[in-house]
Design a protein around this nucleic acid. Structure first.
Lengths: 174, 174
DNA sequence: ATCTTTTACTTCACTGATGAAATATGAAGC
DNA sequence: GCTTCATATTTCATCAGTGAAGTAAAAGAT
């Protein structure tokens, strides 16, 4: 059944009722927040669903894709943490998992011996090239009825929101 | 530092490089997916950050808000699962936590004795009314530079995307 | 009326993610 | 050259969330 649509309807009603009790609430903005959260996690579920057959979770997939997208195919745990928005602890686990499957290699850095160099393995590249294409149809379908203007607008608005979120956490969450 | 903006820049470059290797990838759509995921989880982190002082996590807060927004302040675990998009298992834990804090009550239903009635307690209402207003400024700031048209557009596009996601999971994830 | 199926929730065992402390190396001050 | 401080990663303890099985009650079948 139409799960997200359902939740959104109920959210709309809920916010309307709450804003009657608490009129100073920025209702339109609160709605947008909840919409973002719902659609975001809906999309995440869809992604995890597509990853499940490959025995990968979102953070492992993202880590592998970052490495794949690098010209030299290498990075370090610290850098991967930043771009995958993961804690160092979890990156250790992710790397362990990917090493065990032979998709990446992990060797100590020569220059800075605190560092570890992570590199996508040939098997990792092959794996990505095999698993990625079957995802394309569903991704395309998601935006099937978005015209170019819709896509441009969504991209622009999300980037704007990202920028504002960055401003917000400046200082407060350093 | 501007974390999201950073990640987005690197994502843009990454996708450009990948789409050179794999040209049949729907690059614009993939970018929108990643944007949604990033901004969504950024927003979730911001929310969790605001909830931390109150010792609530997102799912507990959402559950409490659903109850608060109900005219009669009641629901059942099953219904809460659906609207909070949580598994029944986790809803049991959430309810346990909220009961322990005295924010909700949980009693067996008279009509159908399989069911459990969950009701927001007076203390729960007071709690919501106290914790909500301090969040408003940050929520308003997030959309400060969004004009009415931007907000309408974002809302429309997110709802459209939600609808498409629902279509996608129709049948495949029943 | 009783047997089966379905529904609602809980318990248990496990996975994924996080925070705090441990380890080890490098960089900076004196 | 030593001491202190900062950086990079891992280990350990813990929490949040999930899947599978368990329990109990209602609904449906014969």
């Amino acid at each position: 059944m139409a799960h997200l649509t359902n939740c959104i309807t109920m959210m709309d009603e809920g916010i309307s009722r709450v804003s009657q009790i608490i009129p100073q609430m920025p209702a339109a903005e609160a709605r947008l927040c909840r919409l973002m959260l719902m659609v975001g996690s809906g999309l995440e579920q869809e992604l995890e669903f597509k990853l499940k057959p490959h025995k990968l979770n979102h953070s492992e997939f993202l880590t592998l894709m970052i490495l794949y997208s690098r010209p030299d195919g290498t990075s370090t745990p610290g850098e991967l943490c930043e771009y995958a928005t993961q804690g160092a602890t979890n990156m250790t686990r992710i790397a362990n998992a990917l090493v065990k499957r032979g998709l990446i290699t992990r060797v100590a850095s020569e220059e800075d011996r605190r560092r570890v160099l992570i590199r996508i393995a040939p098997a990792g590249r092959r794996f990505v090239q095999k698993m990625l294409p079957p995802m394309f149809p569903r991704v395309a379908t998601m935006f099937a009825d978005f015209n170019d203007n819709d896509k441009r607008n969504l991209s622009r608005l999300l980037r704007k929101l990202a920028h504002n979120l960055d401003q917000l956490s400046e200082g407060t969450q350093p």
